[in-house]
Design a protein around this nucleic acid. Structure first.
Lengths: 212, 212
DNA sequence: GCATATAATGAACATAGATTCACAGACTGA
DNA sequence: TCAGTCTGTGAATCTATGTTCATTATATGC
């Protein structure tokens, strides 16, 4: 599931280096997700990665670079999946269902960090997130407008409630965030599949235009 | 609008002390709202308040206490208004409209900090917010359940779409957050009143049960 | 097995920022 | 005007944490 690089045929040294790099990044992701950027210390990350502090600096210039790398890679992964599973969908209703599944899956895989991904890249309370890399911002923007167009089609076809497409997108985001946030607070015992089903039912009840 | 204490008839010394205390708290609110807890320095706050660093410590034990005070007071204010304007409302639809207005008003008055208030007290990305004072948490919990009951009535009466009341509450929260977040990113030129109107229309389109 | 290159290490260093405290100024009552 | 008290001050202190680098360990090629 994670973004395995094409490790193929590289010199073994190179492969190991990349593997270590990734291990560090993944450890960092876990720590950042727990404590946020400023709340996390390089030592914590080193410990989680089972390397010495100095070693991290053989792979990354600074704590900040490490954070940006983690964030950027996460966003790219997520957006790739988004393009594939959501934007690739013809039927607007299926597209919405796909968004829901994707979001929940990401939450499940990346726990805390997922919050950042499809959440509007608002500087969370100012400090938690540093600036997103500009490229990532651009990609997010594109994805959002593309999705809005999908919703537009749904509205035009009369399947979705006719509030503006942009507002509809915002509402969907918000609802997803709200549920995800809840699940982050008290881990539900309900298995993933059921959560998705319930969420889908809820959301569709709201946004589908009822037959008169 | 703010939580003016009953300054009445106290010895002047006392009144001045309280005034200073409040000035500091208000300055802190602005700085915290801009930079988050860890992102803000005591010196910044001192500067904003136009006092020396040491002076702050004559009024508050620590940076942390200062933060908690700001947060707690904000929450109390907000919840008082919530009880009055929302829970006091008979008609469930009017109650929802009141929530919308309140939320937008709070945003307008407290800019960044408002995000924290009615947002489920999820440790925002882990570090931004310290633990809320337990009393505040309890109050928030009460307000939420009370509001859920209002929605319940609306569902029972057949005016709201019949997803569970708790889920409906979550959706409302989410949608409000989404719009507020948008407005925090790019300040809309639209005046407050219009924003409220548009938001109300959008939300009601979603949650009102359509006549068949 | 040795010499060299590469990677890992963690103690030492530098800095930022929270907290303290000895001092200065302002006010009070006589 | 003066002693006494209270308030405000900001330089000095202490601590936490990001970053560096001399040293040690490991791997590679001969």
């Amino acid at each position: 599931m994670g973004g395995e690089e094409p490790t193929q045929g590289l010199p073994r040294k190179e492969r190991e280096r990349l593997a270590h790099r990734r291990e560090i990044a993944e450890a960092a992701e876990r720590v950042f997700a727990r404590n946020g950027y400023r709340g996390s210390t390089v030592e914590q990350i080193a410990q989680e990665a089972e390397f010495a502090v100095g070693t991290l600096y053989n792979f990354f210039q600074s704590k900040e670079e490490l954070y940006e790398e983690v964030l950027a890679s996460l966003i790219e992964q997520a957006l790739a999946l988004f393009g594939e599973r959501v934007l690739g969908e013809e039927d607007p209703v299926k597209a919405v269902e796909a968004v829901i599944e994707l979001r929940v899956a990401l939450l499940d895989e990346h726990k805390g960090f997922a919050r950042v991904v499809f959440q509007t890249p608002l500087a969370e309370h100012g400090d938690a997130s540093l600036a997103l890399p500009p490229r990532a911002l651009a990609l997010i923007g594109e994805a959002q407008t593309a999705f809005t167009q999908v919703l537009e089609r749904g509205i035009a076809a009369g399947v979705f409630v006719d509030i503006g497409a942009a507002d509809l997108a915002a509402c969907l985001q918000g609802i997803l965030n709200a549920f995800v946030a809840q699940w982050l607070i008290h881990e539900p015992q309900e298995p993933l599949a059921e959560r998705v089903a319930r969420l889908r039912k809820t959301i569709l009840s709201l946004i589908l235009r009822k037959k008169s």
